[in-house]
Each structure stands twice: as structure tokens, then as C-alpha cells.
Design a protein around this nucleic acid. Structure first.
Lengths: 213, 213
DNA sequence: GCTTGTGAAAACGTTCACAGCC
DNA sequence: GGCTGTGAACGTTTTCACAAGC
């Protein structure tokens, strides 16, 4: 039930994509699929998919394949996406706003439950149904809602302070868009640095290689 | 000068971070640094840094360390960031707008040279000095400007079509934010899927592990 | 003495290949 | 017969440990 052995983080990060493919299949009315089919639709190899699933259990039937609905449900359970998962977003700039819009569509997944911004001009403003609160209310609101996931979409200067506040409010996983190394014991941090992402692209544009996921 | 041996893509993707650390050091007036110092400031190990640099040459002095300005310059040369690098952005939504603002600050690096959007209501609008063009002009403008890097920040439905148009316009590296697997021979694709990123975070929020870059 | 650059070793992740099971 | 689940082989990336060089 709980994280079995040593599950590689990369494997976990592929699960949401498998889940998306499964839900596409469900919408198409497909009830049974195979690792080969999932491979075609996800871009990963069928062995990879079977290995990734095997870290968590045995969900298929030999000779037959996987039940689409059943596997979706299992993946949701593994990921902790059985109900809507509230996320606290700090920074209501363009990136933050984009994230709110992205997540406001399918409410079965993670959704932005609270937004905070330092700019008092933004406070009180409503974005896709969520009202921007002052950062001073972060700790109280996050604790009250029991939010465990934080997203940092603020400028580099304030990133560390925001991170500390999120951690103190019992957040255990953070998605960080600021170009700053953040870490703390018992807190999982996923960094996405759009600037360095673009910069390394310049290198690949010269040599032009293959795809990287 | 050209990509030496077999340089791992992961190593290349770390270089921009080293570059940023070096430029922070330069701003602080530091002229000489060491792999241990870079390690402390970047979050990667000193051996990792030395290995990464070794793929491209020997830039330090034994017993002494690295010249900050010299190493910065070398990294810029390796990455192809000696001058401003023009990027074509497709999709002028919140995410696209965020990217324009991010890159408009430091113009020594990659910057958005052209923006395209399907929505004719957005065409003609100006974002941080860049005027939104209709997608129909993509091919002509990209070829005219000689842009080699494309960024896809459009909804899933249009991603593939936009990708094909970019490739046909001689773009060789693409940063894709749509949740679609894109690939083509001789074109390097970097996928960033914000939705799956958030979803996998739900898993890590439960188990709460260590940092992952 | 101190720090780089680098082979060798270890850890990690992916692919192979096939036994196990419907 | 067909597809899953998995140990073993492979390739890649990281870490170790030290010789080389200022």
C-alpha cells in the first residue's frame, strides 16, 4: 500500500502521464488496454511502463492486459489523487495565473485552493474563482485548509522566505519556479527553472539531438 | 569547439545553473572560485561540477581554482550564449506572457524575438515590447529572423500542428509546455508538463522525500 | 598544501528476454 | 497465443579516490 521498496522518483513522475493516457482511453470508450498500447500513446517503452507499475504491485492480467478503469483508479490511489488535492500558490503573476487556469479545469486532480501575493494591489482580486490573499495570511490559511503542497512562483529574492513560511505551515512538497536551490529535511522539492531550461536549449539548437522527456 | 565526445544531456542542462552562480559571484566582486564553492552555491557536488566541465575541456588551475570571468565566458561559448539568442514563442496566454517577462530582463541570454497567437483578439497587442503576430506569419517570420529555438505554450489540441510549423521553419530545438509527446529527427525537444508535475507532487507530499533537481 | 582533472567503482535506470499465467 | 511481471544484462550517470600540477 505505502511506497513499496525503493521507487525511483523518475518512475513516479511518469505515472501522471500514464494516468492521462488511461483517461483519454476511457473517454474513447476503451475498457481494456495493454502496455504496448500505453507505450504507443505515452511515448515510453512498454517494458518501462510495466516496470514502473511493478514498483507498486501487479495490476494487469497476463495474456489480456489492463482494465482501463481499474488501472486509473490504482494510479490515483498511488499518487494520492483519489479526491481533489488542494495546493497553495504563492505569487499571482503571469506564471501563477497560468497555473490557476491550468488546474481549474479538471477538479479531480490538484487544484489551487489559495493564492498569496505580496502586491497589495493584487490582493482581493479574483482569478478563476480564487481570491488573492496577502502573504501575511499564508501560514494561517495553509494550516486551516490542511494544504500539504505549495507552489512558489515569486521572484528569486522572496523565494527562500516563502519556502520557509510554507514549510513552517506543514507543507511537505513544493514546486519551485524560482531559480534558487531550496531544501529542507522531510520536504520534497521539485525545481522547474524556465530560464535555465531555455538556456540549455541554445546548446541543443546548435547540435540538434534527440528528444528528452 | 563542437560538442566533444558523448556529452550527457543532463550535464548540459546543469551548465546554465553554474553560469548563473558564476555571474552572482562576479556581481559580488569575487574573481576566483573553486568547484567546492560552486558546489555549495549550486547544490550539486564538486565532483559533479568538475566532471561536467571536463566534458568540454580543462578550465581551471590546479591548486587554485577557476577564474570567475573566464569560466563564465567559456560556459557562454559552450552553450551558444555569446550574444542574445532569439526565441520564437507560440501562444500568448499567461504562460507565454510570463516567459516573455522572464526573458526580457537579462538580454544577454535567450529572449523572445517573436510571439504568435491564434486568437486574433491578441494579435497586434504588445507584451513587454514584443508585438503578437498571427500564427499564419510564423513560418515567414521565423525564417526571416533565422530563429532556431521555439517555445510551444498553446493548448494540447494545437501543439502538434504548431510543432510541425516550427520544424518546417528550420527550428532545431523546442521547449514544449503542452502535454503531448512531440518528436522529429534532428530536432531536440524539451518537455515541461506543469500538470503532471503538480500531480506527481501529490505522491511526494505523502511520503515526503528529499530534493530532486 | 590545495584544488583540478580523471580513470575506476558504485549506483542507478532502462532494455532485454523469457518464465508464468490467462 | 498473447501479454504481464521480473531477474539479468546493459548502458548511463554519479561518486570515489588519487595522481598531476600549480
Amino acid at each position: 500500500m505505502k511506497p513499496q521498496r525503493k521507487v525511483p522518483a523518475v518512475a513516479v513522475r511518469r505515472l501522471p502521464l500514464y494516468l492521462r493516457v488511461l483517461e483519454d482511453l476511457a473517454r474513447e470508450g476503451v475498457e481494456v488496454t495493454s502496455s504496448a498500447d500505453l507505450a504507443r500513446r505515452s511515448g515510453y517503452s512498454s517494458e518501462q511502463i510495466r516496470k514502473d507499475l511493478a514498483y507498486f504491485g501487479a495490476f494487469g492480467t497476463r495474456g489480456l492486459g489492463y482494465d482501463v478503469g481499474q488501472l486509473s483508479q490504482q494510479l490515483r490511489r498511488i499518487l494520492g489523487l483519489t479526491g481533489p488535492v488542494p495546493v497553495a500558490l504563492v505569487g499571482a503573476g503571469n506564471l501563477g495565473t497560468a497555473l490557476i487556469h491550468y488546474t481549474s479545469r479538471n477538479s479531480r486532480d490538484a487544484f489551487v485552493a489559495a493564492v498569496f501575493d505580496q502586491d497589495l494591489g493584487k490582493v482581493g482580486q479574483e482569478i478563476a474563482g480564487v481570491t488573492v490573499q496577502p502573504v501575511s495570511e499564508l501560514s494561517a490559511t495553509v494550516k486551516e485548509l490542511g494544504v500539504r503542497i505549495g507552489v512558489i512562483a515569486v521572484p528569486e529574492e522572496s523565494a527562500r522566505e516563502v519556502f520557509d513560511q510554507l514549510c513552517d505551515a506543514q507543507v511537505t512538497a513544493v514546486l519551485n519556479f524560482a531559480p534558487t536551490k531550496l531544501e529542507r529535511r522531510q520536504v520534497s522539492v521539485q525545481n522547474v527553472d524556465l530560464t535555465t531550461e531555455l538556456q540549455s536549449l541554445a546548446y541543443f539548437a546548435l547540435g540538434a539531438g534527440a528528444e528528452r522527456h
